[in-house]
Design a protein around this nucleic acid. Sequence first.
DNA 1: TGAATTATGGTCAATCATTGACCAAAGGTC
DNA 2: GACCTTTGGTCAATGATTGACCATAATTCA
Lengths: 219, 219
Amino acid sequence: MGIEERRERERSARKLNIVRAARKLFYEKEFKDVTVAHIAKKAELSKGAVYLYFKSKEEIYGQILLSELDKTYNVALSSLRNEQSAQKMLIAFAEIYIDTFLKDRESFRKIMTFMLQTDHLNLSENLNQSLIKSANKTMDIVGTILQRGVEEREFPPNLDIWQSRNIIWGMLNGIISLYLFSGKEVSREKVIKSMIRAGLNHLVEGTKTSTKQKKAICA
Amino acid sequence: MGIEERRERERSARKLNIVRAARKLFYEKEFKDVTVAHIAKKAELSKGAVYLYFKSKEEIYGQILLSELDKTYNVALSSLRNEQSAQKMLIAFAEIYIDTFLKDRESFRKIMTFMLQTDHLNLSENLNQSLIKSANKTMDIVGTILQRGVEEREFPPNLDIWQSRNIIWGMLNGIISLYLFSGKEVSREKVIKSMIRAGLNHLVEGTKTSTKQKKAICA
DNA sequence: TGAATTATGGTCAATCATTGACCAAAGGTC
DNA sequence: GACCTTTGGTCAATGATTGACCATAATTCA
């Protein structure tokens, strides 16, 4: 049924158009300073039409965050494609992840702000769950790399993958938070990447030394 | 008013979509074998929607012819841009005109068929007039070139421009009709162009010789 | 500090746009 | 010539959208 398909395409296009318009405004101003009337105007629709596609202002915002998170995940996935050591993969992942936010600092700000106040946004349970799930997907890439390291006997078999993943994740986002919005722009990339590279190397060496020390004690 | 502008753009886009769908079908089949239901289906609209934008099936067809004629005119206009002799301009015009239809033979067929039965199509007076006018515009390029030839003293000052224009126009279309749909495709372009070039040269020389003979008789 | 005013998220009756069943007429078949 | 099929064109019903309106929150002012 071409007519029904065309209508569906039009609905999708209209929804995407609203999201694009809203995204621009949310990136220019704070959430509370953006009005639904303004979003509607930019999308060349009425307010009623915006509410046809979205339950609330928060739903629009959440949808934007969701697509940011999904995009970040899809980009970071490429770090799994090269056959190389787990340590090198971790560094490759981190660099791709950092690049994503160097290109779009506002995206990082929004995502991190959301993480800090998931209970404040008044999103539907469904959307909230999707956001958490999407964020976790990217985090899980780190876990996948660590698991490979253990399987290739590069990391100790008793490595606590869940804990290590979270430590790496925290360090990554913590360092990016420290330097993404401050310091000299010309050296920002270098500072962040070298610091994270050093931190990852230290962490990896630490897991190996821990195993050697345990073996030494047993001898 | 963004909303009204968006609605206008959507109406234009929908109309263009109908014309595109119809054009494909009219180029595959005869006018009478194409149904409005089929056009609607190809455009992914209902029949009622098609009649929202067009008064009748003939109106759609006429609109398509109009855009073909306008396109032909715009392409042919470029022959007026080069500063050269009127004779060379005529040949340049002819070659551009021929190329248009070598690329799209069906366009030529449709336009010529229309010329042969303007009274059969049952178009609105308005659309009919637009079609005639558009066809005449292209023809008038020939007249413009001839006028320049007279002004540059390349052609005799007493040249009947209207008559000469029609002679050239008739010869052009007559020769194209003869060879566009028959003969070997590989030599088609060469045959048509060389024949028209020869015909134009003969006609031009004929206008010059006519003036010389008149002068000789007066002496 | 409370009243008045303004701004805005969200709603819904009115309006606009589209659909496809229906009809009349033309063409085809037996 | 009666009957059937096809199709151009129509329009009541339905889907999509609009923007005035309302309730509530935030802001301003005396």
